[in-house]
Design a protein around this nucleic acid. Structure first.
Lengths: 252, 252
DNA sequence: GACAACGTGCGACATTGTCGCACGCTCGGC
DNA sequence: GCCGAGCGTGCGACAATGTCGCACGTTGTC
């Protein structure tokens, strides 16, 4: 039984008990904890949005995160705005178009799109719903959301090219591989001649709330053996990690 | 920032995301955790009532405890039923009457009462509201609930005897002492010639949900120097700890 | 205006949570 | 109906992590 979780639940119950905001000392006394420990728990609870601190009185009360448990975890707009700069940077460094996606009602949706720097003949993909099982972005999202993956597989895996994964078992294996290596690739699974590399975006506790990836011609994305170029993979993963660090960093 | 709390919040978000119940493996994969770790977190969350496991499918979903955060922490009836046997035992061993109390809307209420074994001339105190600042039971409850203590002090500290604590500062000091030693006593603060010894009842994370204590003639409760007899204090504390262990033990 | 009490941060220690592994079991497929 | 894979669960050892004590700077109070 994990001590800190038990304690945090007690803190939440305490905060919920009365309409009054509570001081650190009061909580510490109520639970028989040192001030430091109580403070540490409160900081974490505030960090994840389960508690809030009144900036004026320094007292704590329940946070918005608890009531929002019923809804979608993270606002798509916030994800977008927080990832904007990083996406631009990734596009510049990789010299490819960049997409950020999130799962919405079980399917993958592009929530942000950065054009390839020196290429104007592209379509704006914002808001586009892309096949989750046939793109790197979609597969990464599915890899960390079992129910969605299930729903997609159950709905039927349409073939877009001859390399599209249409076998449920093969898809499950692919998703497992993505989890194992922390990123996912898709080569000509959606459109012939095009490939993508994507990595998950994580919030507190490792919760995946989206994915970011690059998409472009196979000959630029992959090496001679049709495998995603390690340098590009590294770039995508590093960007994803930076965004994740950002998401867990300043307030939520 | 406490890792396990962040992770547990992620688990809760995950459980809240979809209406489907989730498997341990799915949660572990989604957060990038080993199965064991995820399982440990889930067990704890279930333990504190934030998650529930379907006994048939072994899958997890959100628990009732989360939605009940807004209401009183622990049902008084449950506290009563769980403490019944222990209260009887305490009455038998101490040969005194035993009371169990809880805070209700800022004042102390007797939720259970066991008569002194060989004494029939007693009144039934069940449901009785007793002065929180002038009884051992009430003071123990106040010691771990700062807002209630505040409200009581603000409402005015009526004097029932010449030994009743009526000074706010003195009361605060008394409550601090109770926290420090883990039990509280009151000698002729409510009724002349009567004294009490009480200790807190704790749930998960050390949250105080009630108090148990004995009450009787000063000459039996206290030694020659008007101080609570150590043997009785020990008895009360041991009983309180047993009940607390019970409260954190089998399901909530 | 002075004191006390609070919130906050840091560091060292040791407790605690984490991880890897293995056991039974159930579910699904051949 | 049998076999196999995959799951939930439990244990143990390690070391990472949370805990605690202390001290600072500040706020609120008398």
């Amino acid at each position: 039984m994990i001590q800190s979780i038990e304690r945090s639940s007690a803190v939440l119950r305490l905060l919920a008990a009365g309409p009054d905001r509570l001081r650190v000392k009061e909580i510490a006394d109520a639970l028989g904890l040192p001030k430091s420990t109580a403070h540490s728990i409160l900081r974490t609870l505030e960090h994840v949005g389960f508690a809030e601190q009144d900036p004026r009185t320094a007292r704590y009360r329940l946070g918005r995160g608890l009531t929002e448990l019923g809804k979608a975890g993270l606002d798509v707009n916030e994800l977008r705005s927080r990832a904007l700069d990083w996406a631009d940077t990734l596009a510049a460094r990789s010299v490819e178009s960049v997409r950020i996606g999130a799962l919405q009602s079980g399917s993958a949706r592009v929530v942000h799109h950065v054009f390839r720097p020196d290429d104007t003949t592209q379509s704006m993909d914002n808001g586009l719903i892309i096949p989750a099982h046939a793109t790197s972005l979609g597969k990464v999202l599915l890899a960390y959301d079992a129910p969605a993956a299930d729903a997609v597989a159950r709905a039927g895996l349409d073939a877009y090219t001859r390399r599209t994964v249409t076998n449920r078992r093969a898809l499950a294996g692919s998703l497992g591989e993505i989890r194992a290596q922390g990123w996912g690739g898709a080569v000509e699974e959606w459109e012939m001649g095009r490939a993508g590399i994507a990595a998950p975006l994580r919030t507190f506790g490792g919760l995946v709330v989206g994915a970011i990836g690059i998409y472009g011609p196979v000959e630029r994305i992959c090496d001679s053996r049709q495998r995603p170029r390690p340098a590009l993979v590294e770039l995508v993963c590093a960007t994803a990690q930076s965004i994740s660090r950002d998401l867990t960093g300043p307030r939520s």
